[in-house]
């Protein structure tokens, strides 16, 4: 842990100016970047497959199976980096169970006149 802190601070040695001590650590790193990359892969492969089946692009016939299967395979892998990034992945499902009380629509309501 001491070495992690040392590495982090060393990385910022050349940075001039001030930042809050708690913000030296980069919080949304590679794992978060990996997620849109994987979802992009899924979407791309699926579009490729749909070109053959829906739009009858005969040239893509040989890659139809491969693209559809890779879309399916990566679909299950895509959320894993997000889970791995969490401090407590075992509590991740709580996000779907937690009602966020009024917050989003209260924000929008505050902009509408008369409320």
């Amino acid at each position: 842990m001491e070495s992690i802190a040392a590495n982090l601070l060393q990385g910022f040695h050349e940075v001039t100016g001030y930042m809050y001590p708690n913000e030296y650590e980069l919080h949304w790193g590679l794992l978060i970047v990996l997620y849109p990359y994987l979802t992009g892969l899924v979407a791309g492969a699926f579009i490729l497959a749909s070109l053959e089946r829906v739009f009858n692009v005969k040239a893509l016939k040989p890659v139809y199976r491969l693209s559809l299967l890779s879309a399916l395979a990566f679909l299950f892998v895509a959320p894993l980096p997000l889970l791995a990034h969490l401090g407590h992945p075992e509590r991740a499902f709580e996000m779907f169970l937690t009602p966020i009380p009024n917050r989003r629509w209260r924000c929008s309501a505050s902009f509408t006149p008369g409320t």
Binding site: N22, E25, H27, G87, H88, R91
Partner: peptide
């Protein structure tokens, strides 16, 4: 309850939060 997603750490404009490395 905290899942450690670090959203709040990003949101705080005062840099007052950190992710506890053990917890």
């Amino acid at each position: 309850y905290c899942v450690g997603c670090r959203y709040c750490i990003q949101a705080c404009p005062y840099g007052a939060r950190y992710l506890h490395p053990e917890k």
